[in-house]
Amino acid sequence: MSRTVPVLILTGYLGAGKTTVLNHLLGTGHARIGVVVNDFGEVGVDAGLVAGQVAEPVSIAGGCLCCIDDPRQLDDALRALSRPALALDAVVVEGSGIAEPPGLIQLVLGSGVATVRFGGLVEVVDAAQVPHAESGGWDLEQHVKAAAMVLLTKTDLASPGDVAQLRERILRANPHTTVLDAPHGAVDPRLFFDAAEHTVPEGGQLPLWEVGESLGQRHHEHHVHHRAATLEADAAVDPAALADLLEDPPRQVHRVKAVVDVRTPRGLQRFVAHSVAGYVTVERAPRAPDAPAHSVVVAIGPAWDDDAAVQPLLDALPRAAGDGVPTAPERRRLTRFA
């Protein structure tokens, strides 16, 4: 089984703060990130974090960048950026001008590139400029409907009452999204992907996060941290119960990742599953034939105060060996995503 790279779509109206969010992800988090843009000059990615405008993917300090001028080229860019040799942790598609958000989601979900998976759409909204944007024809409700997460930037420049009202409007339009205050564009990348530790050969380029720090990139105390609840059990899981969790996670959970065993008539089978705001991918994975059952499930979201709504759902996933093999319909609840 090839490792799949999550693809995040970053959208928002001009001036909402997409560039600030993108540069924060590039410059922090100890991650290697690929970027797909359709107009490098308009994106404004920090010049210290990229090598320059390119038409083909190039390796840069800690990440890679592809520039495309047509949505139909997206698959080519994703194929190039998800090559195992690049060892990227995530790919970010900057949505300005490439296509409307729902169209971009369909392009990623329908991608023929087997080495990528959809990692969610992030809509960036300037909390202080929503009335101005709407007067120019931007439709808040329409743009947040497809978002797995909405980041509210510049909340420090808006009144608390206006921010609260904005949050309510967003959740009415999309009850399944996660709304986070990110006044300076700072958000924990672990809400979106797992950042691996990468070593740099002697004499090689600095990783992106070190480049950002060497440029004096500002790090704010308003960083939004993540919270995780975990199940690790020497057992197989109930595939139907896991499917329920993946499709309809608790309100405070943004993404779920799982490496689990499921009992079948032919023995244990291993699956790797990911869910971002209810968008589910499941892949079959190899396992040693004689290895005992073992399952790990992690639910990740913005910091929450109480595990009561999350941990019990994880603890209920293991299926005792004495309960027998799940029925074919129960197994299909999970395998239909594969």
Rank of each mutant, 00 (worst) to 15 (best):
A285S: 15
V125T: 05
V276T: 15
L8I: 13
G12T: 06
A16K: 06
D75A: 14
A133K: 11
A186G: 07
A243L: 10
L180F: 00
G112E: 13
L166C: 05
E134F: 07
A228C: 06
V36K: 05
D315C: 00
G216A: 09
E141D: 15
Q311E: 14
A186D: 09
A288E: 14
G48N: 06
P175W: 06
G27I: 04
L152C: 09
H226C: 10
G136S: 11
Y13Q: 06
V256G: 01
W304T: 02
L49K: 08
P286T: 10
G48V: 03
L104P: 05
H274G: 00
A87N: 14
A321P: 02
H274I: 02
P207V: 08
A80L: 11
L25D: 04
G27H: 06
A299P: 06
L152H: 04
G216H: 04
R172N: 11
L246S: 05
T199A: 15
A16R: 05
D248P: 00
S159K: 10
V187H: 01
D305G: 14
R332A: 15
A288I: 02
R172S: 11
T19S: 13
A148W: 00
V224A: 13
D75R: 09
G161W: 01
T20N: 05
V45W: 09
Q53V: 06
E283S: 12
P289R: 13
L78V: 07
I300H: 03
T230S: 11
E123D: 10
V45F: 11
